[in-house]
Simulated assay, not measured.
Amino acid sequence: MNKRCENIYKTARKNAGITQEKAAELLYISSRTLSEYENGRLIPSDDIVYQMVELYKAPWLAYQHLRCSSEIGKKFLPDITLTDLARSILKLQKEIKDVENINNDLIEIGCDGIIDDTEKDKWALATKEIDEMAGAALAVIFAR
């Protein structure tokens, strides 16, 4: 698990203002097991993470857990940067503008439904921008 993902469980618990001992008790796991999760030595099961999400009132944790702990999540879920609501909204507005700037290329590529060799670079940029916009939208939903 990468360094950024190792502490998502600890961050969620600390943001909830719950001690490690209390969280372990409420999750019906040992403090040592919770410590292993929080230090990236073990990956909690989806069932445990669901309990953490409920206990910590942190829906973003479910997303980050899937993104960090599964190959499907690593490959297909866009990266999100969690921040305050105002910054998240501004980032989303910026990403929307970036997608608007490539709109003509999207239309041109989409007209024939084929990405030919001359359009591959434009398509790569378009998918990058759309991915960034999707991540920014999710960051707004999960804003703290």
Rank of each mutant, 00 (worst) to 15 (best):
A126D: 11
S88V: 04
E25C: 03
I80S: 01
A136D: 07
T118R: 15
A134F: 05
D79H: 12
V53A: 03
N7M: 04
S35M: 11
A24R: 05
I43S: 06
L27I: 03
N104K: 12
W123R: 02
L125P: 02
I107Q: 10
P44C: 06
Y37W: 03
I141L: 13
E36D: 12
A23L: 09
V53C: 06
K120P: 06
I107C: 12
L77F: 09
S45N: 08
K22M: 12
Y37A: 01
A124Q: 10
A58F: 04
L125F: 08
F142D: 03
Q93G: 01
G40D: 14
D112M: 04
K57T: 12
L138G: 06
M52E: 12
I115K: 09
L92D: 01
S88M: 05
D112H: 09
I107M: 09
A139D: 01
H65M: 03
K57H: 14
W60L: 00
E21I: 12
L66A: 12
D79T: 13
L138A: 02
I141V: 15
L66P: 01
L92G: 02
I109C: 09
D117E: 15
D46Q: 13
K75F: 14
A126V: 05
K74Q: 15
C5F: 14
A86T: 14
E25R: 03
M52K: 00
D131R: 09
S70T: 15
I114D: 08
N101Y: 07
K14C: 07
T11V: 13
I18L: 07
I115H: 03
V140W: 09
I72C: 04
D121P: 00
N101F: 08
L77Y: 06
K94H: 10
L85A: 02
C111M: 15
E129Q: 13
N7W: 09
A137F: 13
S45H: 07
L61T: 03
K10T: 05
E25Y: 08
M1I: 06
I18T: 06
W60K: 05
I102A: 02
I89H: 02
L85Y: 15
A23Q: 03
A62M: 15
K14G: 05
G40C: 05
H65N: 05
S30V: 10
D79F: 15
N104P: 02
E54Y: 08
K120N: 10
Q64H: 11
S45Q: 14
I43G: 01
T11C: 07
P78R: 06
E132T: 12
L138K: 02
E36L: 11
A58I: 03
V49K: 00
I96M: 04
I96Y: 14
L92W: 07
K14Q: 15
R41M: 09
E36F: 12
D105Q: 15
I43W: 08
D112V: 09
T127P: 04
I43M: 08
Y56N: 01
N101E: 15
Q51A: 05
D47C: 06
A16E: 13
K14H: 11
I141K: 11
E95N: 00
Y63A: 04
T83R: 03
N101K: 04
R32F: 12
C111R: 13
T19E: 11
E36H: 05
I89E: 13
G73S: 03
A124E: 11
I130D: 00
L55W: 02
D112E: 11
V53K: 08
M1L: 10
T127K: 11
N15W: 06
R32T: 13
L138Y: 05
